[in-house]
Design a protein around this nucleic acid. Structure first.
Length: 322
DNA sequence: TCACGTGTTTCGTTAATCCG
DNA sequence: CGGATTAACGAAACACGTGA
């Protein structure tokens, strides 16, 4: 059996897009008779007339209509595959959708400046923020996710990573909460009732382990899937929320909430960007990574300069002032 | 192994024809 | 008249045998 003639693919794409031999010929820089002969070859190869006479014009057959989108996608992919990779990246015309998987905390803090930075440089690029149901390299591998942002897990070994910033947990309560009427000591903190965030619904975390070292135990009365949910509950109750400090630095952080340093030591949270090595050399993806890193650097600069940010010399303090 | 000659195939062109 | 198709033809690529 003969291999299909792949040279016919761009001609088929042009014919289905134009619906006309003359139009397709013009598009590919050929004479209409040459395109007519190519159409004849396509008809023989596919076994369908593809375009048939309807009065003075040609109309596509149902099979041609069914093929149109597939052929167009294929033709574009073939063009991309065979295009030299070292051609300069043209951000002004870059037409692409990037899917970024991140938790609500990251989206809340970084999505606005990231979208602004992306649109400023590449107006035809679209960003799709996908929820982060689990740590799973599958979507990175199969291409459903371009960039995964979060804490490194037991990821596939081939996945590339880059540290974006370091974070740490802080406590958050409503204004006027009795916990902040005196220094937040481990016993006073443990005596309060808490709301925590867990995607898997777990009730125990590093804070509980640190408290246990001191012989203390806190009472968790609510587990929610996202940090905004925890903040909402803290705002309307006496529950103490546990959220990353980056959430507190968000401009949208409610004024009637106060954050405070935890009275126990907890491990830092290293937030990283992760991507599949398949995209390592992709110029557009590299630009996206650089943009994400730059936005994170700029957005966390202000936060880093505030007391209590990881790596900064600081004492426990109640936030919300100023 | 390589260069060369020759026949075949492919795919383009122009010009003519057909069709609505 | 505009657009599709076909016939005739040519250039380039390809396949293959041959000889150095």
């Amino acid at each position: 059996m003969d291999a299909p003639d792949l040279n016919l693919l761009p001609a088929l794409d042009a014919l289905l897009a134009e619906g006309s031999v003359t139009g397709a010929a013009r598009r590919l820089g050929l004479s209409s008779s040459a395109m007519s002969r190519t159409l004849a070859r396509l008809r023989a190869a596919i076994g369908d007339p593809l375009l048939v006479r309807a009065g003075s014009r040609l109309v596509p057959t149902p099979y041609a209509i069914a093929l149109r989108d597939r052929v167009h996608t294929l033709a574009r992919e073939v063009r991309d595959v065979l295009s030299p990779q070292d051609s300069p990246l043209d951000l002004a015309t870059l037409d692409r959708t990037f899917t970024i998987r991140a938790n609500e905390g990251f989206v809340g803090l970084f999505s606005a400046p990231l979208v602004a930075a992306v649109l400023a440089a590449a107006p035809r690029v679209r960003l799709r923020f996908a929820p982060k149901p689990a740590k799973d390299a599958g979507p990175l591998r199969d291409g459903a996710v371009d960039l995964d942002i979060g804490v490194l897990g037991a990821f596939a070994p081939e996945v590339r990573t880059h540290l974006l910033f370091r974070d740490r947990f802080v406590g958050v309560v409503r204004t006027g909460h009795p916990l902040l009427s005196a220094p937040v000591t481990p016993p006073r903190y443990a005596a309060a009732r808490h709301v925590v965030v867990s995607r898997k619904g777990g009730f125990k975390g590093p804070v509980d382990e640190a408290l246990a070292m001191l012989g203390l135990q806190r009472e968790i009365v609510a587990v929610v899937p996202g940090f905004p949910d925890a903040l909402r509950i803290a705002r309307q109750s006496d529950l103490v929320a546990l959220v990353p400090r980056s959430c507190v630095g968000d401009a949208s952080f409610p004024h009637d909430l106060l954050s405070f340093e935890l009275p126990v030591a907890t491990p830092e949270i290293a937030v990283s960007a992760m991507w599949h090595p398949r995209l390592d050399a992709d110029l557009a993806h590299r630009w996206l990574r650089d943009t994400v890193m730059a936005v994170c650097r700029a957005a966390t600069r202000d936060l880093r300069e505030r007391p209590g940010w990881p790596g900064m010399a600081s004492q426990a303090s109640s936030a919300g002032e100023g």
